[in-house]
Write a protein that binds this DNA or RNA. Structure first.
Length: 519
DNA sequence: GGACGGTGAAACTTCAGGTTGCCTC
DNA sequence: GAAGTTTCACCGTCC
């Protein structure tokens, strides 16, 4: 194949290649190693494009209005979209992600600069897959080459047989001859890495131990060992003695946490028998298994709930508990300039916290600070801060906020269930309230309004500011005012929800809805 | 003389991804 | 390790 000659229009070859693809009226995916880089790549490309189209203008507006108040990320994406460029990563709101994907498929968007999200799972082929970075930051090891498997995933996006492409091009960028040789050797000619069983990780192993016992699949340690022997994990591990001792450790934890009871047979009766160590699952253990919860997390929650019965726990206490579980990881990082205010907040509310709190000198302290940061961010969501404010203040993008809110809700739901089983009635009430406010993103005063269908944080606040503060006020409010605030359909709907079926207000008189800003 | 604004270099900071549960407030 | 962001010194202009 003859070498491509591509004009140098920008400061990076990956961008030049992407622009060249657009010139040929084809599509490209540019894979970047960070979200920031994906965004700036798309923006730089957009700056080089001067075409315009009505379709893209419309799409950009749609992208901009996905959230009730657009974030700077929304504005940036909308700017790119206007030029037929886009970025894609987990920080996008899910609707925006879908819009980007769909409009790449239908050809309106020409280039997507993305993190590896697009390479996994999504079927989004393009004529060219440009892999801008083959290295990624790997904690204390600095920049490291990505796995060959990941390279294959990304390169595999090149070529669209469904669109009669006869070939596709996967392009890596090297800055020296030596690097080019490295890339060929490490990625293009290299087989993918071995796959290891996920069971080999302790959290997964202990979850399965408990759930196998809880579902009656295994009644003794022997049956557990038999089961794992037949799995891919057993096949890979081979050494069943080692597995047995790992299982021993897991079972001891489960027993210590009161999820199972092990009835041991006299040791000297049968020296070699794993034999008759019966496993009995407690009520608590059964519920933990049903909740698909890592037993360690469950134990962590239960310990914290016990503490909560003995002191005043606030919503922040429950949020921070949820944020300190493994399920919420990876946690958003704490920036240097944030450390001070998080520690200040910590000083203030330390007595309220119910989860384990390491000292400054322990290695867990970093993660603890992060959990505190996320908890504060979620709390400010409940205090009605907008997505943009949270992005600016905490550097947590809308998509990520949404994901963390869901995870947090799941953990808190589990906490609620466990509290019910343990008969901690007061706690249940508080967790429910926390979950509700977290779901809706409202202050306490808006709870009665936000309970109504079709009323979220925006409408509830609008009503409240106009003196309508609860169901009683909605009953009293006249339709004209409600219509003015929320529009006719929603107003009628609200009245219906509280048991009043009102005929439509006189037609033709309808004024525009009142903007939130003015009231 | 001082406030202000623009510029560029140096110093500093940050870094990918995503499934599970329930109906009740 | 590299790209992006912030900070800061420096200079010119204006009032």
């Amino acid at each position: 194949m003859k070498p491509l000659s591509i004009p140098e229009l920008t400061d990076h070859p990956a961008l030049d290649i992407a622009l060249d693809t657009v010139k040929r009226n084809k599509q490209a995916l540019v894979f970047c190693n960070t979200r920031r880089s994906a965004e700036s790549t798309a923006e730089k490309l957009a700056r080089k494009i001067d075409s315009k189209s009505d379709d893209l203008e419309k799409l950009a507006d749609e992208i901009l209005n996905v959230l009730s108040s657009p974030t700077k990320q929304c504005r940036r994406l909308a700017y790119c979209i206007r030029k037929g460029m886009a970025f894609h990563h987990a920080g996008l709101a899910s609707k925006q992600r879908k819009l980007v994907e769909d409009n790449f498929r239908n050809g309106r968007i020409k280039v997507i600069a993305s993190t590896p999200t697009l390479a996994f799972g999504l079927n989004l082929p393009a004529f060219r897959a440009v892999i801008k970075d083959l290295k990624r930051y790997g904690g204390r090891w600095g920049l490291q080459y990505i796995p060959a498997l990941e390279y294959h995933q990304m390169a595999g996006r090149a070529g669209r047989p469904d669109f009669n492409d006869t070939h596709g091009e996967a392009i890596c960028i090297a800055s020296t001859e030596k690097e080019a040789e490295d890339i060929v050797e490490k990625f293009i000619n290299a087989p993918p890495e071995n796959i290891y069983s996920k069971l080999a990780v302790e959290p997964v192993l202990r979850t399965y131990c408990l759930s196998l016992a809880a579902t009656g699949f295994a009644h003794s340690k022997k049956e557990l060992v038999d089961f794992f022997e037949k799995t891919f994990y057993g096949y890979q591990f081979q050494d069943m003695n080692a597995i047995e001792s790992i299982l021993d450790k897991m079972l001891n934890y489960l027993e210590e946490w009161e999820f199972i009871r092990q009835s041991k047979k006299d040791d000297f009766v049968s020296a070699n028998s794993l034999g008759d160590d019966k496993i009995e699952v407690t009520k608590l253990g059964e519920r933990v298994a049903q909740l698909y919860l890592d037993p360690f997390t469950a134990h962590q929650i239960i310990t914290a709930l016990r503490r909560a019965t003995q002191k005043t726990a606030t919503e922040l206490s429950y949020l921070q508990l949820a944020c300190s579980t493994l399920e919420l990881r990876p946690l958003p990082s704490v920036r240097v300039k944030e450390t001070d205010f998080i520690e200040a907040e910590l000083n203030e509310s330390s007595s309220l916290l119910i989860a384990f709190e390491p000292s400054v000198f322990e290695p867990e302290y970093d993660e603890f600070l992060k959990s505190m940061k996320l908890a504060i961010a979620l709390e400010s969501w409940m205090e009605e801060k907008t997505e943009n404010e949270i992005l600016e203040e905490f550097n947590i993008a809308p998509g990520e906020l949404h994901l963390k809110r869901n995870l947090c809700d799941w953990i808190l739901y589990a906490g609620e269930e466990l509290a019910a089983l343990l008969n901690f009635r007061d706690i249940i009430k508080n967790i429910r309230k926390t979950r509700f406010r977290l779901d809706k993103g409202v202050k306490e005063e808006l709870i009665p309004l936000a309970r109504l269908k079709n009323v979220g944080r925006v409408r509830a606040r609008k009503l409240y500011r106009n003196g309508i503060k609860d169901i009683g006020d909605i009953k009293k409010a006249d339709m004209t005012k409600l219509t003015q605030l929320l529009g006719e359909k929603t107003a009628l709907n609200l009245k219906k929800q509280i048991g009043e079926d009102i005929e439509k207000v006189s037609k033709g008189k309808r004024k525009g809805q009142l903007g939130l800003g003015k009231y």
